[in-house]
Amino acid sequence: MELIDVLGICGSLRPGSLNRALLLAAQELAPAPFRVQTWDGEAEVPRVHAAMGRPFPPVIGALRDRVAAADVLLLVTPELNRAIPGTMKDIVDWLGILAPPRPLTGKPVVLMSASPNRFGGAFAQLQLGDLLRRSGAEVLSDLDVVVGDAHRQVDDHGVLVGEDPRREITELWQRVLTQIRNDRPAVPA
């Protein structure tokens, strides 16, 4: 079976992040043929402003190349005031700039979020999905994970231990695999 390369990015910079625990659980629970690698450059992402222009800052150029090379992008976002935090917004804005390679154009994207509130970051996911679609990404609808009361689902070591969210992530990977197989054109014999 052909390897499916997934790049996972967490929009949280907070030590002990619930969303980082969610990303690491997604990596742990990903079955073959998925290979989930995480990107840890969130703290290095500069604010987006027109004066920076091109060439892109090195961290952004490398990120754009890595996203372009991935088969699937997994974005795990915290929620701040019912919206995506600035770090995640900057990441998506840098990826959405229309310059080669255009990493979000047609890119399948899966969304996850965790929050101590009961909604689990659903408002941030809605906003992030809209932003990604406007940048040309293919947000895989109904293929997301929202973990409410996440502080009760993550242990003191930052590990997602809740049975329900772990089951949801496992089921998510199966749905993503089905979606990707259905969308890939058949290879003529």
Score class of each variant (00 low, 15 high):
P58C: 10
P33R: 09
D93S: 06
V72K: 02
R20G: 07
D65Y: 00
H151F: 12
V109P: 02
R64W: 04
V110S: 00
P58I: 06
V154T: 09
K107E: 06
V92S: 09
H157S: 13
L111V: 07
E163V: 14
V59D: 08
W173L: 11
R47Q: 13
A51L: 12
V145T: 06
V92D: 04
L74G: 09
T170Q: 15
L18P: 01
L128Y: 03
M52K: 11
Q179E: 13
V76Y: 00
D149C: 09
W39C: 12
L29T: 10
G8C: 06
V67W: 09
I84C: 10
K89M: 12
V139I: 05
L3Q: 13
V187I: 13
P101W: 07
A32R: 11
N182F: 08
R20F: 00
A32C: 01
V176D: 10
V72L: 13
E28N: 09
D164M: 11
D5W: 05
R152A: 15
R175I: 01
V187A: 13
A25M: 05
G96K: 08
E28M: 05
F123C: 09
D40G: 14
T170D: 12
K107C: 04
E2T: 12
G120W: 04
R82W: 13
L74C: 07
R133D: 12
L132W: 00
L131Q: 11
N182H: 14
P55Y: 07
V146D: 00
P100Q: 08
F123T: 06
E171T: 06
N117L: 07
G41E: 12
L177Y: 07
P46N: 10
D90A: 13
V187Y: 02
Q125W: 03
A30S: 08
D144N: 13
M112V: 01
D5E: 14
R35Y: 02
G53L: 09
E2L: 08
S113K: 03
V76M: 01
M52A: 15
D156V: 04
G162C: 05
P58S: 10
P31R: 07
D144C: 03
P78D: 10
D164N: 10
R14H: 14
Q37A: 15
A26Y: 04
A189F: 11
G136E: 06
D130R: 13
G8P: 09
P46H: 12
L29W: 04
E138I: 02
Q179S: 13
L63I: 01
R102P: 06
P101Y: 05
L75W: 01
A70V: 10
E171Y: 00
I169Q: 03
S141K: 07
L63Q: 05
G53H: 05
A30I: 06
E138C: 07
Q37R: 15
G136K: 09
V109Y: 07
N19I: 03
A25C: 09
E42L: 12
R133F: 02
V6Y: 00
D71E: 14
H49Y: 11
V59I: 15
I4V: 15
R66S: 14
L95F: 02
A30L: 10
G121N: 04
P55R: 09
V92C: 02
H151N: 15
D142S: 12
V59S: 06
V72P: 01
V109R: 02
F56P: 02
A186Y: 00
M1Q: 11
K107D: 02
A62M: 04
G8V: 01
G8I: 03
E2R: 15
V92E: 01
I91H: 01
F123E: 04
R47A: 14
S12N: 03
